[in-house]
Design a protein around this nucleic acid. Structure first.
Length: 433
DNA sequence: AGCAATGATTTAAC
DNA sequence: GTTAAATCATTGCT
């Protein structure tokens, strides 16, 4: 207010009246008597200045009436142009102080995150990436689909709230900006307000609103993070695999008991079959190996079960293979088998008929499969052939797979490590011995 | 509530 | 990178 009154004093004392400043001259009272011509002009200026000064303090109705009178004042145009000039000069320093700011890095981070989470961005398919991540992290299967949809629903909810709020803010911002601009434009007729100043004011308003928007974005991000941690932290919400998935994994495990290290391709295939991720397959095999090794006795029943389960198909497959070999090349049993043997067999059955490229496994694969079948058959033979060590029916199956060191007999090195360049025909490298 | 089973994570070794 | 081993955290059964 000091600057303003000083400015007005200068105006009244020097620029307009043409007189030198009279030391510390206060504004003339608004209602004074008319004196000489000079005095009268001074009185006019003082009056009009006072009116301009107070017009913003008055109510709109009051101001409306006064504005009209003010605009009609004979001194108004001259005074107005001078006020504008002074305002422009003082405004320069202000303008220099606050130039347009660079994009806020924090805001950019929030925007990026919201975009990545599918909260902002296009409506259709929004959140699919995050939802897919949720599906992958929480472990597939039918149980997971419930969680998946639940996650999606919650994310959609957040998304809706976010957009509604954002729209509200934007609308309010626009309304307010328009209102202020109208007000300033209106006032620019009576007060020295330049278009640039209006622009600056709009900028200030937008900045204010964008800071509010940032708060909204921040809280939305927080909500998404909480949602994610709740749904995606598998440890917090562990889901057991479906029975079918466990069965598939167990079948593979027990039919490859001699070397239960599925190759990368086999893991992928198992993951696909079980609707879980490859790392979940790895986890499962890791857990299974260690738990089996730790307590073989406990798993004997299970081993027998799966051995018996695959025995019939294994027997059929081996029989067919033998028959096939005999018919194809009776003199050299192994020479002709590679090209024609493609029957389902044993534990590999669920893998071999649909390799990654859709072809049947043939050629070198056959040897591995037969070995696997022999593994399985050996269990079954032990079980059904009456071999009994006298310790009871459940101890039929002997853990021939483990060596004295506690390692897997045939598992010299895990297949995925030692044979990364295996061809597509040797997916089951872990069974070839 | 107690417990076993089980999927995931961590750590260390390779 | 993978793996074994230990451990954590949850699920599901009794």
């Amino acid at each position: 207010m000091d600057d303003q009154s000083r400015m007005l004093q200068t105006l009244a004392g020097v620029n307009l009246a043409g007189h030198s400043v009279q030391g510390g001259m206060a504004l003339p009272p608004p209602h004074g008597h008319d004196g000489a011509d000079g005095d009268g002009r001074k009185q006019d200026i003082g009056d009009i200045l006072h009116q301009i000064m107070t017009i913003t303090d008055q109510s709109l109705d009051e101001a409306q009436a006064k504005k009209h009178a003010l605009n009609c004042h004979r001194m108004k145009p001259a005074l107005f142009s001078v006020l504008c000039e002074i305002k422009e000069k003082t405004g320069l320093s202000i303008r220099g102080a606050q130039e347009e700011d660079p994009p806020d890095p924090q805001l950019m981070r929030l925007d990026n995150m919201l975009l990545a989470e599918g909260v902002s961005g296009p409506e259709k398919g929004g959140g699919s990436a995050a939802a897919a991540a949720a599906a992958a992290a929480s472990g597939g299967s039918s149980d997971n689909s419930i969680e998946h949809s639940d996650y999606r629903a919650k994310l959609t909810q957040i998304r809706q709230i976010y957009h509604t709020e954002l729209e509200k803010y934007e609308q309010a911002c626009n309304e307010f900006t328009t209102h202020v601009m109208n007000l300033l434009r209106e006032q620019s007729r009576t007060r020295p307000i330049s278009p640039k100043e209006i622009e600056r004011m709009v900028g200030i308003i937008h900045r204010k609103f964008s800071s509010i928007q940032m708060q909204l974005k921040q809280s939305t991000c927080e909500a998404v993070m909480i949602l994610r941690s709740r749904f995606l932290d598998a440890r917090r919400k562990r889901r057991n695999f479906s029975k079918q998935a466990t069965e598939i994994l167990n079948e593979y495990f027990y039919s490859h008991l001699s070397n239960p290290y599925p190759s990368e391709e086999a893991k992928e295939e198992l993951a696909k079959k079980c609707s879980i991720t490859v790392s979940q397959v790895s986890n499962w095999f890791g857990n299974k190996r260690i738990r089996y090794k730790k307590n073989i006795g406990k798993f004997q029943e299970e081993a027998n079960l799966y051995a018996a389960k695959t025995a019939v198909t294994a027997a059929h497959a081996v029989a067919a293979a033998v028959q096939n070999n005999q018919t194809n090349s009776p003199t050299t049993p192994n020479s002709g088998s590679s090209g024609s043997f493609n029957l389902p067999n044993s534990g590999d059955m669920f893998m071999n008929m649909q390799s990654l490229n859709g072809d049947s496994y043939q050629g070198s694969q056959v040897g591995a499969n037969v070995q696997s079948q022999v593994d399985t058959l050996r269990h079954v033979i032990n079980q059904t052939g009456g071999y009994n060590d006298g310790l009871g029916g459940n101890s039929l199956y002997s853990p021939h797979n483990l060596n004295a060191n506690g390692g897997w007999q045939d598992a010299t090195t895990p297949s995925s490590v030692t044979s990364p360049t295996e061809g597509p025909g040797s997916v089951h490298s872990d069974t070839s011995n």
